Simulated scan of single mutants.
Amino acid sequence: MAKIRPLMLVPPVIFLGLAAMFLVGMQRDDPDALPSALAGRTAPDLVVTPLGDLPAFDGSMLADGEVKLVNFWASWCAPCRVEHPNLEALAAEGVTIYGVNYKDKAPQALAFLEELGNPYAAVGQDADGRTGLDWGLYGVPETFVIDGEGKVVTRFAGPVTERVIEATIRPALESAAAE
């Protein structure tokens, strides 16, 4: 019988370790979900500038007693175009949505809203991306559900589709309203 050398055990042990990691990773609820350190915490400051002559907002408006969405978007963002009709539908239902135009130029942002419509109750511009960093943005679009006290209930990274509205946004809005 051949003698087993310790180095011969290394490849099978590495394989078993990797297999265990993959198995654990596949057990997560939503493998595409990006965690948010803000959930349950007061929303960070909103340091934004007005966008054209559109109604502006600031951080104090996030704690006005009403549930709302904060949506980060940009005119150069293709997924932002995809989600836009869904944001307009939510706004038509009476959902208050504040828009933060992220790392964009004002003329292009205003043209985007002129072309596609404006679902936002108020809009601010984050031209240098500082507010996006404070909010932990990975990119645009990203949407945050904010409760009436100004706390982040949930965050969704990516375009808000009908499926996302039903599976994530609407339940978070209802949960925030019930608190």
Rank of each mutant, 00 (worst) to 15 (best):
L7V: 07
A63S: 00
P171K: 15
M1P: 08
D134W: 02
W76E: 04
S175E: 11
D104A: 03
G117C: 14
E166S: 15
A74D: 06
V153T: 02
P55T: 00
G52P: 03
W73M: 06
A127I: 00
A89V: 13
T42D: 14
I97D: 00
L51S: 04
R155L: 06
T161F: 05
W135A: 00
P31D: 14
R130W: 14
W73Y: 00
L7R: 03
F156I: 11
E115T: 15
E114W: 02
N118T: 11
E66D: 10
E174T: 05
E93I: 12
I169R: 12
S60C: 09
K105V: 07
R81I: 03
S175Y: 02
P171L: 11
P50L: 07
A37H: 07
K68P: 06
D32M: 12
R170Y: 13
N86I: 14
A176W: 07
V100L: 13
I146N: 03
G129F: 12
A33N: 10
K68N: 12
G139A: 11
V145P: 03
M1G: 14
P119T: 12
W135Q: 09
V48K: 05
D58Y: 02
D58K: 11
D53Q: 14
A111L: 13
M61K: 08
L51G: 00
L116W: 09
M1V: 07
E142M: 07
F112P: 09
T161H: 07
V153S: 04
I169V: 12
A33I: 03
I169F: 13
I165Y: 10
M1Y: 04
A106D: 12
S175G: 05
G117V: 15
A121Y: 06
Q125K: 10
M26L: 05
V140A: 01
I4N: 04
T161W: 06
T96L: 10
G148L: 00
D126T: 11
P85M: 13
E142G: 01
L133F: 01
A176K: 02
A178Y: 04
V153F: 05
Q125I: 14
P141G: 04
Q27G: 08
L16M: 09
L18C: 01
V140M: 09
P6T: 03
R28D: 11
L46K: 00
P85W: 05
H84F: 11
G150E: 04
I14V: 10
A63T: 05
L87W: 06
P12I: 12
K103L: 10
M1Q: 11
A89E: 01
A176V: 01
T143Q: 06
E149N: 03
E179T: 02
V140W: 10
G150I: 05
W135Y: 02
V160L: 13
I169G: 11
F22M: 01
R81M: 05
G65V: 05
V95A: 05
G132T: 11
A127H: 09
D32I: 01
L54M: 13
R163G: 15
F144T: 03
P79V: 02
L116F: 10
R155T: 04
Y138I: 12
P11D: 07
A2C: 14
S60Q: 02
P141V: 11
A167Q: 15
P35I: 02
D45R: 08
G59R: 04
M8K: 09
